[in-house]
Structure formats: structure tokens, C-alpha cells
């Protein structure tokens, strides 16, 4: 699957700042889309595009924090870097609690800006990769039969084949067959790998709960 090149969304109500920072980001090698109106940005913003969002704190109508909380409702959202002319501690705390990855104080140097954007994009890429993997695992899990799921849940809970056979009132040999299929369908080469996958994507509690 080919991933589209990362895009930097820039939102600032000051046209002069908007133009200058867009130039700098472009010269720094980033595709940039600039918005002076936060409402227009929210309407046009595509959460599926990898990249990051540079958001000014003081925006007319909707504040930067408002925009951030509206973005939070969408899936696959890009990391938000706040830019602000004011060293406002409460606003900074709110922004960071809301998941902002960085907070740049205007006027900022190109190295600071570009490094922050680069880090945010890298972080976004990692998140997207993990999300993709999680989606993949979920798809694999969906391919299991109900019986296989029941066996899977007990395997990762650490129960022995004999115990599972007793639980499900089937013979141990059948358990072994199911177990081999689960390993194959989930793409795990060892029990350890299966458990790791289950833990990583939070399947343990869910499956154990549904299986028992």
C-alpha cells in the first residue's frame, strides 16, 4: 500500500504570518496547506492524510483549543503543534492535556519549527503504522471461527490444552487442531508471539472476557 506524502496543515489568522511560515515550510521541504479561517480548515481537513497540524492559539471565532477539541472527535487525526505569541501557562496546559505534541512560542526559529514538524510527522507515521497493524490484526481475528476464538482466548490466558479441552468439553486432540489453525490465521510463529500480538492490541481482556 503506497502512503501519500505527508502534508502540513497551517492555521493562523494573521495573513502575513501565514504566508511567511508557509514559505518557510515549503522551503524546508514540506507540502503545506494554509488556512486563515479555522472553520474552513475544519471543513476541508482530511484526517486520513498523514502529516501534522500547526495551530495558532488566538484565532477569531474558534480558539486554537476549540479547534483541537473538535479534531479530537475525528479518527486518525494528525498530531497538533501549537504556535502562540503569548506564553500563557493555563492555555499551554490545556493544549498539552488535549494531546498537543509541541508548543512553539512566536517568533520561532526555522530549526525549531522544522524539527518540531519533522518529529510530529514521524510520530504520525508511527501511529498510522501501528493503527494499520492493529487493523490488520483485528481483520485476522475476525477470520477465526467461534470455536477457534474460544481456544485463542484460553491459550493467551495461559491455560493448558488439557484444561481447554475440559473447559470446552472436547478432546485434547481437537484443541491442538484449533490451536494450530489459530496460530496460522493470526500469523504467529510461536505462543510468545501470539501473546505479544494479543497484548499489544489490547485483545487479552476482551477475548478472555468473551471466551470464559
Amino acid at each position: 500500500m503506497r502512503t501519500p506524502s505527508p502534508l502540513v496543515y497551517l492555521v493562523d489568522d494573521d495573513p502575513s504570518v501565514l504566508r511567511a511560515v508557509k514559505r518557510l515550510l515549503t522551503a524546508g521541504g514540506f507540502d503545506t496547506k494554509a488556512y486563515s479561517d479555522p472553520a474552513l480548515f475544519l471543513a476541508e481537513h482530511n484526517p486520513a492524510t498523514p502529516g501534522c497540524i500547526l495551530l495558532d492559539m488566538a484565532l477569531p471565532g474558534l480558539s486554537g483549543i476549540d479547534v483541537q477539541s473538535k479534531l479530537a472527535a475525528t479518527a486518525h487525526r494528525q498530531p497538533v503543534i501549537f504556535i502562540s505569541g503569548e506564553n500563557n501557562v493555563p492555555a499551554t496546559i490545556t493544549a498539552l492535556k488535549g494531546g498537543a505534541v509541541d508548543f512553539l512560542l512566536k517568533p520561532f526559529d526555522e530549526t525549531v519549527l522544522l524539527a518540531a514538524v519533522r518529529a510530529a510527522i514521524a510520530r504520525d507515521a508511527v501511529t498510522r503504522e501501528e493503527e494499520a497493524e492493529a487493523g490488520d490484526i483485528a481483520a485476522r481475528l475476525a477470520g477465526l471461527t467461534p470455536r477457534e476464538r474460544a481456544v485463542f482466548a484460553r491459550v493467551i490466558a495461559g491455560r493448558l490444552n488439557k484444561q481447554i479441552a475440559a473447559d470446552l468439553q472436547i478432546v485434547e486432540k481437537t484443541v491442538k487442531v484449533h490451536r494450530a489453525r489459530v496460530m496460522k490465521k493470526m500469523g504467529a510463529r510461536s505462543l510468545a508471539e501470539l501473546v505479544r500480538l494479543a497484548y499489544k492490541y489490547g485483545l487479552v481482556d476482551k477475548e478472555v472476557a468473551s471466551g470464559t
Partner: peptide, 25 residues
């Protein structure tokens, strides 16, 4: 003063970013 600093920071931000963008270009 906070708002004032913000007001003054806008042109300063634009100037710095413009100058650094030009240097990169």
C-alpha cells in the same frame, strides 16, 4: 501586556520566517 506581546510577535514571526525561507530558497 500579554496581548501586546502577541501583537508585536506576529510581525516578528513573519519577518523571521520570511527571512529564513528566503535564505533556504
Amino acid at each position: 501586556s500579554g496581548a501586546l506581546a502577541h501583537e508585536l510577535n506576529q510581525p516578528l514571526t513573519a519577518i523571521l520566517s520570511n527571512a529564513q525561507a528566503a535564505r533556504r530558497m
